[in-house]
Amino acid sequence: MSNEGNCGYVAIIGRPNVGKSTLLNHYLGQKISITSRKPQTTRHRLLGIKTNGNTQIIYVDTPGLHQRQHNAMNRYLNRAATSSIVGVDAIVWLVEALQWTEEDSFVLNTLANISTPIILGVNKIDKVSDKNALLPYLENVATKQNFTDIVPISASKGHNLVELETKIVQLLPVSIPLFPEDQITDRSERFLAAELIREKLVRRLGEELPYRLTVQIEHFSSEKNLTHISALIWVERQGQKVIVIGKKGKGLKSVGIEARKDMEVMLGCKVYLQLWVKVKKGWCDDERALRQLGYADN
């Protein structure tokens, strides 16, 4: 009997904070991509692999496409996002219901010469109180690009996600699965641990600081039913270090507790987590520092 089914790569793209990582996590049934209400939470191209029988969808979660190019980090994020739409079998472009921003137009321009099939996912329909306003919006966005399908969804509530995924599968080539059926991402546990710490920091801190910090795992080792993890939180200025640590160390302690709980769920064992905060001036606008901290182009 043949193992051939439908298998291929699907890029999830859109402007920052439109729900791409939430959609991916929902499809996988567990968190591999961190989320927050702040834009640019996702910084890395990340594969989420969903296998159902002989059907395998390899989702490519991407940083939000945005117009700001003022530092090395912003330029890296856009390169990571735009490179992810090359060579995929289908694209799911997320927009927010009843919203159309300059950054949505920027995504539209980025996709202008793409021949890959594009499904438009109109997200956050659960937040639309006047459902009558949805139809004119859908009719309007339908004129902007030759979409294969337009599917109104709610990634956070799970509305219409089965319908969206059915349409995705129809666009995938006939192929044997490319990854083992029990593999859900191409990223290591070490990478995911760093991202969990960064998620807690992003959610806890004010508007600007999350973009000025990153997390680097220094030590990761497992023995019996315990994993030891130590991590460095890099910021750009001494004042930022003080904010991250918090009064009497309470900020850093609560980040550690929240991250450790998520790590224990992810790893299925007890975790001993140590965190330190260090200053590396100007790392956000230093290409070499970015590479050293794990921001390397794929």
Rank of each mutant, 00 (worst) to 15 (best):
E139T: 11
N74R: 12
L138D: 01
P152N: 12
F106V: 04
R68C: 01
V128P: 00
L178M: 15
I168S: 11
K131T: 02
L171A: 07
I57Y: 05
N78H: 04
V151I: 11
D130I: 02
G53H: 06
I85A: 04
E163Y: 10
I168F: 13
D126W: 06
D149Q: 07
P152E: 10
A133I: 04
H70G: 09
F179Y: 14
G158E: 08
G53W: 07
T82M: 12
P152C: 09
R75W: 04
D126V: 07
L172E: 10
L77Y: 11
N54E: 08
A112T: 01
K157M: 14
E96H: 07
N54P: 06
S83T: 15
A90T: 09
N140C: 09
N113T: 06
T55F: 07
T148P: 04
V151E: 02
L161G: 08
E102Q: 15
Q99Y: 12
V95L: 00
L134W: 05
S83P: 01
K124T: 07
Y59F: 14
P63T: 03
D130H: 00
L111A: 01
V174A: 09
H66D: 10
P63G: 07
V86T: 15
S129L: 10
L138R: 04
V92T: 00
L171H: 09
N132A: 13
T148N: 06
L120R: 02
A81F: 05
Y137H: 08
